[in-house]
């Protein structure tokens, strides 16, 4: 960039190998050294602006679709015509493909509002308290996948502008969220009860919390002799029958609750 733009074409002309080899004949010398005649140019732009730089790609533009300046080796080869997406061979998807987990069915890309509304209630904390950590963890992942499914179909419904169904999906997602909340509550309760048990064990002389030795050594104790003072010595037959009848009348069968449908999500 040190040379000015006007000097560059001149320098290039001088550096050309042909020009240096061709020495002008001697009879042309007077014309070369003669004072240049004054020429009035039609254009006011100085001629030395062109070519303005050494850019070989000047004027080549992909936006204006000018094409290359010189033809290249593949110029004669015709471009392939694009194929319509409908005419392409159908893609065979593996029936066990993992991405099917993002849909409720393989037939259509989004569930109808009726299908979305067909679900039960969420798992409640009382039910979850009886479950092991493995069960809870598995249930959590079932919830995670269901939420992904709902989110995918929500997006698809909006994209297709399919119509109603957002409310049903929202209610379904809420059920899943309630189940997840229950799982977290159960685990939190378990953590606090474990911590309290640990505090109790620290004060208990029977429990050894250090890693070595027996962890639990129960104290020896003798069971006190139980002396029942007022044991009825003899029960008459009549009394026994009466007592049985009284028991029978009390024994009302416990209220049978209708078994609720287990949550669809879980």
């Amino acid at each position: 960039m040190s040379t000015s733009t006007s000097l560059r074409p001149m320098a290039r002309r001088l550096l050309q190998p042909n020009a240096s080899q061709q020495i002008p004949p001697s009879f042309l010398l007077p014309s070369i050294f003669a004072p240049s005649p004054q020429i009035a140019s039609f254009s006011s732009t100085p001629n030395s602006f062109y070519p303005r730089d050494n850019n070989k790609q000047r004027g080549v533009s992909s936006q204006r679709r000018t094409g290359l300046r010189q033809p290249v080796s593949v110029s004669k080869t015709a471009l392939p015509t694009p194929v319509n997406a409908k005419d392409l061979p159908k893609i065979e998807t593996d029936p066990d493909h993992g991405l099917w987990g993002f849909f409720h069915s393989k037939e259509k890309s989004l569930a109808t509002p009726e299908e979305d509304a067909a679900h039960g209630r969420a798992w409640c904390v009382e039910e979850l308290r009886a479950k092991s950590w493995e069960d809870l963890h598995a249930l959590w992942w079932v919830c995670v996948k269901e939420r992904n499914r709902i989110a995918t179909e929500n997006y698809e419904r909006k994209r297709l502008n399919a119509g109603y169904g957002a409310h049903e999906a929202k209610v379904r997602a809420a059920m899943v969220r309630i189940t997840q909340r229950g799982i977290k509550q159960t685990l939190t309760e378990r953590y606090y009860s474990w911590r309290e048990a640990e505090l109790l064990a620290q004060q208990d002389p029977e429990i050894n919390l250090s890693a070595d030795g027996v962890s639990y050594t129960p104290k020896e104790f003798t069971e006190e002799e139980y002396v029942d003072e007022d044991v009825p010595e003899e029960v008459t037959e009549e009394e026994a029958i009466r007592a049985e009848e009284a028991l029978k009348s009390q024994a009302i069968p416990p209220e049978t609750k209708p078994v609720e449908k287990s949550p669809d999500a879980a």
């Binding site: 259509k108 890309s109 509002p113 399919a162 119509g163 109603y164």
Partner: peptide
């Protein structure tokens, strides 16, 4: 980019279960 190809399930053609007419 996955190992196995996956084609999406078909879009529903009939939108009457979603009550599209009334919705629109």
């Amino acid at each position: 980019e996955m190992d196995k190809p996956f084609a999406w399930p078909q879009e529903p053609e009939d939108f009457s279960p979603w009550d599209k007419e009334r919705y629109d």
